[in-house]
Simulated assay, not measured.
Amino acid sequence: MILSHLNQVQLSRRWSMSPRTLERWRWEKTGPRYLKIGGRVLYRLQDIEAYEAAHSRELG
């Protein structure tokens, strides 16, 4: 099964950061786009990848 959405814990593991950081980013209206469905927060994989691409830096 291919995941098309990640929850807060899954994304925090992907990025090796605290889930609380993602909570703060949502409160500050920064970070990747997210969905809130029935009280659950989900991040679409396409939005995560777009956020990663927008924040990538070249070395050198």
Score class of each variant (00 low, 15 high):
Y51F: 15
R14P: 01
R40E: 01
S12I: 08
V41D: 01
L6T: 02
R26H: 04
W15P: 06
H55T: 13
A53C: 07
Q46N: 09
W15C: 05
V41G: 08
L59D: 13
R26M: 06
P32D: 02
G60Q: 05
W15F: 14
K36H: 03
G31W: 07
W15S: 04
R57D: 12
E28H: 11
V41H: 01
I48Y: 04
L3F: 06
E28R: 11
S16G: 09
A53G: 09
R40M: 06
R24V: 14
A53H: 08
I48T: 07
Y34Q: 00
W15H: 06
D47C: 00
R14A: 12
M17C: 15
K29E: 15
L6A: 06
S12V: 11
R13K: 15
R24A: 12
E28A: 12
R57A: 15
H55I: 10
I48W: 06
S18G: 04
P19F: 12
S4C: 03
R24P: 11
L3W: 00
G39V: 03
M1V: 11
Y51I: 02
W27E: 15
Y34H: 09
R26P: 01
H55P: 11
S18V: 07
A50T: 13
A50I: 09
R20K: 13
L35M: 09
E28N: 12
E23K: 14
A53S: 13
S4F: 06
S4P: 07
L42N: 00
R20A: 14
L42P: 00
P19H: 13
R13Y: 08
L11E: 05
S18R: 07
R20E: 12
S12N: 10
H5C: 01
L3T: 00
R40H: 09
E52I: 13
G60M: 07
I48N: 04
V41R: 02
R20H: 12
M17A: 11
A50N: 13
T21H: 11
V9L: 09
S18M: 10
H5G: 01
H55G: 13
G39F: 02
W15R: 03
Q10I: 03
P32C: 00
G60W: 10
I2D: 09
V9Y: 04
N7W: 03
L6I: 00
N7P: 01
P32T: 05
E49C: 06
R40S: 06
R57S: 14
R33T: 08
K36Q: 08
S4G: 05
G31F: 02
